[in-house]
């Protein structure tokens, strides 16, 4: 945030991060309430990814990663278990890394970045499952989840974009 005239205090920043993580928890809870009507196991909307997008585009890469890791750990402790945490971490980290790199190139818009993030999230989870379960048999799911990842990534990207441009500058910075 080089061109910010006004400096953010540490407390303001902390509050903003806390808000994002709280939002991630709400989204996770909300998503857990949606019954598994999706035909494909493992297919998710990935609402919480909006939070990572916001952190990435309004604060920066390191902040996005921090928010991402914190929300995964918290959500896993609250709603999941140790196994859920491993899969979420694998998917969440890969997706965050991919999105950070794509954003850094400065070539792509938010929706595109989010789509790549959605795909890599699913791919990361499947790779983790392959390692944990010691089987390549689930490559089958990758074929399907690749496209569901694109779909949910697009949706989340549009929602995220609309949110990112509306969030108040006072709290969330100017972004880049």
């Amino acid at each position: 945030m080089k061109n910010d005239k006004r400096k953010f205090s540490g407390a303001e920043r902390t509050a903003a991060y806390a808000m994002l993580i709280a939002l991630a928890l709400v989204f996770s809870w909300l998503e857990a309430q949606i019954p598994a009507f999706f035909a494909v196991p493992g297919m998710k909307l990935g609402l919480t990814n909006i939070v990572v997008l916001i952190a990435l585009y309004r604060f920066g890469s390191a902040q996005a990663m921090a928010v991402n890791i914190l929300r995964i750990v918290l959500v896993s402790v609250l709603f999941g278990g140790p196994w859920a945490m491993i899969y979420s971490l694998a998917g969440g980290m890969l997706s965050a890394i991919v999105m950070i790199i794509l954003k850094k190139t400065g070539l792509f818009r938010i929706v595109t970045v989010s789509i790549a993030g959605g795909i890599s999230h699913n791919a990361g989870q499947i790779i983790a499952a392959m390692i944990v379960m010691n089987t390549a048999a689930i490559a089958w799911y990758l074929a399907v989840l690749w496209f569901t990842g694109m779909l949910s990534g697009a949706l989340i990207g549009i929602l995220g974009y609309e949110m990112i441009k509306r969030l108040p500058e006072r709290v969330f910075g100017k972004g880049e």
Binding site: L102, L107, F108, R109, V111, T112, I115, A116, I119, A139, W140, L142, A143, V144, W146, F147, M150
Partner: peptide, 21 residues
């Protein structure tokens, strides 16, 4: 650029899908 990347991603997915089928 966005369209190019998306087409690339779509094709990659299609290749995986065809490979599995």
């Amino acid at each position: 650029r966005d369209i190019l990347l998306l087409v690339f991603l779509f094709l990659t997915g299609a290749v995986i899908f065809i490979a599995v089928i």
